[in-house]
Design a protein around this nucleic acid. Structure first.
Length: 491
RNA sequence: CGGGGUGUAGCGCAGUCCGGUUAGCGCACCUGGUUUGGGACCAGGGGGUCGGGAGUUCGAAUCUCUCCACCCCGACCA
């Protein structure tokens, strides 16, 4: 186990906090609830961004940027929306400071009060739809499919690094369409993009579904979600895509002239994923030795540690390793040859494990003699001695194997932790003793949903799109149920 | 915002109850040497508004008051 890292079995949440800090991903800042994302953590986020950005562009979206500030009056134009966000908004009231008359620092200049307060965006539907109003007159202007990479602020009571911070980074897509069908299709396309990203890049299996009315995004008619299962048996909402109907078009009076010249309100979708994905990535795969990163998102895919006693030894090792580094780079593999002599090999091994580097190569005098290298896998913690002649090809294949293995392991875990229950007693028992996802029948009412939440703290994560659609009877009320829904305790 | 807890070197802590030399320890850091196949060792060295402010006292990390910050449990939460 990594030095000082609390074991998951002892205290999962402490393990998580320590891991985030010890692996150099992020730390708390001087501002309550706001984090500093450190270079290594940000490098992972950048990998995520690159992959997602490409997927967005491949599905016909363009990037744009809208302001950080939203006039207070905009937020209140859509009734559900303002109700959902009002309690966690940061508000700008003044635009100037002045020297403290008492001589200590600066104070807000009371004369510099804004006519209308500005809200620091908690999400951008309102500012974007107020802008779209000017962009849309005719069906010829549609669809508009914009995405923005931005920061948003939600003044959360209790925060945790990556999982819930007062300020976070995300992308938000906002699209405008001529028909309901098209907006709906967009909503579904994007949740599929998110699911693909989670599974293919992050190696995290997700359940796609839609939210109950209670859990829906403020202002949406339908919210699609991807739900991932963490190692402690709790669910993490990892991405959402919302069908907004004509709510925002009506709130901001965005109409277009159709082919027949009739004016109609525009249909909308919005969708987003955030730095919370970092939390999902960390919690889904990592172990008591530290981070485990899927090769596709690892900033360093291969770390090479030379083992040497003298400068001459190092020179010999470098002569052998440099061509390998070049060959790996040619294959698009990111390599770090760590020939620093201020840390011992053992320290480096532990450090790269802590930081989740998928493959580590050790090359020492013994290897030089035998024309070999020691290849260590982070996911299985196993080591193998491989001939230097085809080590680059071996590594390229091994990276794919590791990517696949990490996903399979997470999938097996989820399968094992997903339980179908028939009665409320069984539900409570499974929730208490086993945790994880629970598939059960529910009568579709908010009251029952609320009761379950109050009794057990479990919520309906989603009504799954795929899977068993057999009707049944609600485990609580016995009333008819259209299909099983997915329950879990959530982050 | 309610209940509990903690603030002492970059990090982790002891000292506080019962006021009294120059505020200690481990890790980290710096210098030198020996080391290097799983978090090395020895020697030397640097680093402190004891969370802030006020008070009691000859004397405060220690006692009193007050403010602040953070953590845990609730409440709240795409």
């Amino acid at each position: 186990m990594a030095k000082g890292l609390t074991k998951r079995s002892v205290d999962y949440s402490q393990w998580y906090n320590e891991l985030v800090m010890k692996a150099d991903l992020a730390e708390n800042s001087a501002v309550r609830g706001c984090m500093v994302i450190k270079p290594y953590g940000y490098a992972i986020w950048e990998k995520m961004q690159q992959a997602l950005d490409k997927m967005f562009k491949d599905t016909g979206h363009q990037n744009a940027y809208f302001p950080l500030f939203i006039p207070k009056s905009y937020l209140s134009k859509e009734a559900d929306h303002v109700e959902g966000f009002a309690k966690e908004c940061a508000v700008v009231t003044h635009y100037r400071l002045k020297n403290d008359p008492d001589g200590k620092g600066v104070v807000v200049d009371p004369e510099a009060k804004l006519e209308e307060e500005l809200i620091v965006r908690p999400t951008s539907e309102t500012i974007i739809w107020s802008t779209y109003k000017n962009w849309i007159q005719s069906y010829r202007d549609l669809p508009i499919k914009c995405n923005q990479w931005a920061n948003v602020v939600r003044w959360e009571m209790r925060t945790r690094l990556f999982l819930r911070t007062a300020e976070f980074l995300w992308q938000e897509g906002h699209t405008a369409h001529a028909t309901k069908e098209e907006a709906m299709e967009e909503t579904e396309t994007m949740i599929q993009v998110y699911a693909d990203f989670a599974e293919k890049f992050m190696g995290v299996p997700v359940v796609q579904g839609f939210k109950t009315a209670n859990e829906r995004f403020a202002g949406a008619l339908e919210t699609y979600t991807i739900e991932a299962l963490m190692q402690d048996g709790k669910a993490l909402q990892s991405g959402t895509s919302h069908f907004l109907g004509q709510n925002f078009a009506k709130a901001f009076d965005v109409k277009f002239a159709g082919k027949e010249g009739k004016e109609e309100y525009v249909w909308a979708s919005s969708w987003g994923v955030s730095t919370r994905l970092m939390g999902a990535l960390i919690m889904a795969h990592s172990d008591d030795y530290g981070l485990v990163l899927p090769p596709k998102l690892a900033p360093i895919q291969v770390a090479i540690v030379p083992i040497f006693k003298s400068e001459e030894d190092l020179a010999k090792i470098s002569a052998v390793v440099e061509p390998i580094v070049a060959k790996l780079k040619d294959k698009g593999i990111s390599v770090k040859f760590d020939d620093s002599d201020n840390r011992k090999p053992g320290w480096k091994f532990a450090q790269y494990e802590l930081q989740g580097v998928p493959i580590r190569l050790a090359v020492g005098p013994r290897d030089i003699e035998n024309n070999t290298a020691e290849v260590a896998r982070r996911d299985t913690l196993t080591k193998e001695v491989v001939s230097m002649d085809d080590v680059d090809g071996y590594i390229a294949e091994l990276l794919d194997t590791i990517q696949e293995n990490i996903y399979q392991k997470a999938l097996d875990f989820r399968t094992e932790k997903t339980t179908e229950v028939e009665s409320y007693d069984e539900f409570k028992k499974v929730l208490e003793e086993k945790g994880g996802f629970i598939l059960a029948h529910w009568d579709g009412s908010s009251e029952t949903e609320q009761k379950i939440k109050e009794d057990t703290k479990a919520t309906i994560r989603c009504i799954p799109l795929d899977g068993d659609k057999t009707p049944g009877k609600c485990m609580v009320t016995g009333k008819p149920s259209a299909q099983r829904v997915l329950f879990a305790k959530a982050y």
